[in-house]
Amino acid sequence: MGEKGRARYGLREGWRAYRLIAGMWIRSTMAYRLSFAMTLVSGLLVTGLDFVAILLMFSRVDALGGYSLPEVAFLYGLSATSFGIADLVIGSAGRLGSRVRDGTLDTLLVRPAPVLAQVAADRFALRRVSRITQGALVLAYALAATDVDWTVAKVLLVPVTLVSGAVIFGAVLVAGAAFQFVAQDAAEVQSAFTYGGQTLLQYPPTVFGKELVRAVTFVFPLAFVNWVPAAYVLDRPYPLDLPEWTAYAPPLVAVACCALAGLAWRAGLRSYRSTGS
């Protein structure tokens, strides 16, 4: 089997194991139906209130960094939905550190399935759909309230951006998990990038200092989750005066992020298997 054939085989096996394990977790959750319903409702409440913070700001101002409320809602909806999807699919990988600490990672390593798939499906939490729901609702409001000259390209760009954004956030989550092979109780560093990144992307790039925008465009390319494609859709100046074609770059950026995250994961796993801790 060549390198390519092997990768495809690994991907298929991984997806299969992922579905099996996630399915088991859903059944486990359903063993406590009432508790599940409660966390689902409170999850909706918590994520919902997240947008209320922005509404509170807009109760005192009409624009932030030159963006109106529906425009900020567009940014918010894109990043929250993307992050919600990534968090649902692969967010559990953030628990890797505790699995390494208590030694239960070893039980995953003796099963005939890729470890990343098993870790990602570990404690699969269906309640995380509340974040996606809330993000999608805000996005729907934004689409209805913004004044956009819709073209075919713009319409197509929205779902493409959502998926690419989810993949970029997913890559961040995997890279963060890989880091936990080395530093087991540094799970909070990951939240600086994920929750921090999501908070950052809720606001227009015009709000932030040039250095910060440069960092999240070229170093941690979170800008492609929503800022750059949204600038195209909303006919706004591009952050850092990027060329116009970059609005279509999110899928490319997502693929590159995946490749890097994959390398980080392999390095992390290799270091675990050589040190056992």
Binding site: M24, S28, D106, P112
Partner: peptide, 23 residues
């Protein structure tokens, strides 16, 4: 070839169950 081997071996960790707790 960890995953290929996995099909041919069985492992029981005395103190860590691999069974599904709530099911």
């Amino acid at each position: 070839e960890r995953t290929r081997l996995a099909h041919r071996i069985g492992v029981v960790f005395g103190q860590r169950t691999t069974l599904w707790w709530d099911l």
